[in-house]
């Protein structure tokens, strides 16, 4: 009878899983960059004139309320119809970035709302141009206090990247499925995949929580 847990097999599949981890990290980092940038644009537009605000609000609500996996399929199957052919990983990164941008935009919005009114008024009194008001006064105060919340979303995104296996991306879970499927040994593959996620996300969320507490005390 084969043992339930085979240490040799577990050792053999680790390189494949680490290979998958590389893909997962690439997706998370690039996805986060898109989410941070696009989220900020959405947050600033969300304070624009009323029609813009309503459109932005509607888009944000729609994207937030629907599954990331379906959005991934949407981009994967629909972009080629418009002549845009991208690799699966690129599509995945785009979908992650856009989906999480709707979350980060809410975070930025809360941060911007927390900047005292007096700061806006003072900036206006100094007759600073709008761009300077944002880049010189509002954002430098808003962004530092929302960093922990943004960090949380990076961790969330990291744990959600495995759904890119739906379009054939070989991330940690994709690799686990490959190596597990070849030998029908799923216990080692998926247990190690889970541990890999825990190993990275637990310390990361501890760090974010510490940051949150430090800010709360101040």
């Amino acid at each position: 009878m084969t043992p339930l847990w085979d240490w040799n097999f577990a050792g053999e599949i680790i390189p494949a899983l680490l290979n998958g981890l590389r893909v997962t990290l690439i997706a998370t980092v690039l996805g986060s960059i898109i989410a941070f940038a696009l989220g900020l644009v959405l947050a600033v537009l969300g304070r624009g004139p009323r029609p813009v605000r309503i459109v932005v609000r509607a888009i944000v609500e729609f994207v937030r309320s629907t599954p990331l996996l379906v959005q991934v399929y949407f981009l994967f199957f629909v972009l080629p119809a418009f002549g845009v052919v991208l690799s699966a990983l690129t599509v995945g990164i785009l979908a992650l970035g856009v989906h999480y941008a709707t979350y980060t935009s809410e975070v930025y919005r809360a941060g911007i709302d927390a900047v005292p009114r007096g700061q806006w008024e003072a900036a206006t009194a100094l007759s600073l141009p709008t761009t300077r008001v944002w880049t010189g006064v509002v954002l430098p105060q808003a962004i530092p206090r929302v960093l922990p919340a943004l960090g949380n979303y990076v961790i969330s995104m990291f744990k959600e990247t495995p759904l890119l296996i739906g379009i054939g991306v070989l991330d940690i879970v994709g690799q686990a499925r490959e190596v597990g499927g070849q030998s029908f040994r799923y216990v080692e593959a998926y247990t190690l995949a889970g541990l890999l996620f825990l190993l990275l996300s637990y310390p990361a969320s501890m760090a974010v929580r510490r940051l949150e507490r430090r800010r709360a005390v101040r």
Partner: peptide, 14 residues
């Protein structure tokens, strides 16, 4: 700390 997809596959396959 572990991903939901991993949990699903773990319960379904492992």
């Amino acid at each position: 700390g572990t991903s939901e997809v991993v949990q699903l596959f773990w319960i379904y396959f492992a």
